[in-house]
Design a protein around this nucleic acid. Structure first.
Lengths: 213, 213
DNA sequence: TATTTGACTGACTTCCCAGTCATTTGTCAA
DNA sequence: TTGACAAATGACTGGGAAGTCAGTCAAATA
């Protein structure tokens, strides 16, 4: 009986975990809408329905809370997208469409869409967080895209190896959609499906017969 | 003699203008490295070599200072890029190369590179600023790109009208370069020239004979 | 049921920083 | 040279928010 059962050892622990999660949820909201410095713990605490001191039972300080909020929100979604892409064997164009689709449904349409903006905004003051994001999301993401591009190129689905050299170019429009949506949507809505469809259209074209010919 | 001579009416005004500019410079640094909320006026004042109260001779409050910093840093560079592109009559590929070049020299290699990140970071809390940026930079920029794309398409330099429909796709990699450089450069340097060159390569390919054929 | 335990509370302390204003300084006009 | 005036100063204030800790009480235990 050394290892405890994974769920609900007793009432205390269950309630405790619920509190912790409530704090994380409220904190995500607050950090996303106010930024790290301007978010107030008193607001988070009120939204989570706990007392001020409770935060310090779970998190060392405000910064620790921030880091755990961001880390928790990133990992899962990304792993799903990677799994999806790795598993199937569809043509490049189809796979890209599926990824774009999942991206729109699971990220762009949820509060998680704000996370990349938050990391860009606060990355300067949280170098470890930027490093974490780079290590856990960006690098594996680009590696995945590179593998997909290489396979497509070898199969002849992509005429050039441009995306193998710069897989970031396949992702750029998604990032732009994310940031536009987070910032300019109240002013001018972006036609994300149109943007991504046109992007696929460009990528799937028979590129790069030598620039000079 | 109603209109004063444009420069240095007397010692007082010249010194005053110099102080104002010193504050703006110091404030840009501070806001860029700390964000709006965390930047301290005491630091800005110290870096600018003026006293606390001096800020309030020129700016209503911290927010007003922030907005003037950002507005002042954006306008000029962008107008230059637009003028450059509008003036010449070069092929699309060449013009794109020239724009990318100027972008790297005049923005990416200067502190101004931080401005877009700052706007994305703080846009939520400064809706007027986001609107200003959208109106003064983004909209005219996209219009310009659209005109260039349309001309190139009509001339037959671009096989498809993809960029006429979504001019944002021509710009996306520049934005990504900007953000990467601002955030992840200490961790992993981005090969910006390579990225942009590959992007031109993709855009200039003979695209979009109907997806199914 | 009685006792113990420790998770949770929230009023309080402490620090920080935007913004003020009475005082000082330097310039200009007479 | 001097008086008048604006510009600049920086010690100070008020408010706000992060973090603390002695007390409380529901759940676990005997």
């Amino acid at each position: 009986m050394v290892g405890a059962p994974p769920h609900r050892r007793n009432k205390r622990e269950a309630a405790s975990e619920a509190r912790r999660q409530a704090i994380l949820d409220a904190a995500l909201d607050a950090f996303v809408s106010q930024g790290f410095a301007a978010a107030r713990l008193d607001d988070i605490v009120a939204a989570a329905g706990v007392a001020k001191g409770t935060i310090y039972l779970f998190f060392r300080d405000k910064q620790d809370l921030f880091e755990q909020v961001v880390r928790g929100a990133i990992g899962p979604v990304f792993a799903e997208m990677a799994a999806l892409a790795e598993k199937t064997d569809a043509p490049f164009d189809v796979m890209l469409a599926a990824l774009f689709e999942k991206f729109q449904r699971d990220i762009l349409a949820t509060p998680k869409r704000e996370i990349p903006r938050l990391i860009l905004a606060e990355g300067r003051r949280f170098p470890e967080l930027a490093a974490f994001y780079h290590r856990e999301v960006i690098t594996p993401g680009l590696d995945l895209l590179r593998r997909l591009a290489r396979r497509a190129h070898q199969r002849g689905e992509l005429a050039s190896d441009a995306l193998v050299r710069q897989p970031l170019l396949a992702f750029a429009p998604m990032l732009v959609s994310l940031l536009w949506t987070s910032t300019f949507d109240p002013i001018e809505k972006l036609d994300v499906p149109g943007l991504l469809a046109t992007h696929r259209e460009i990528l799937s074209a028979p590129q790069a017969r030598k620039p000079t010919s």
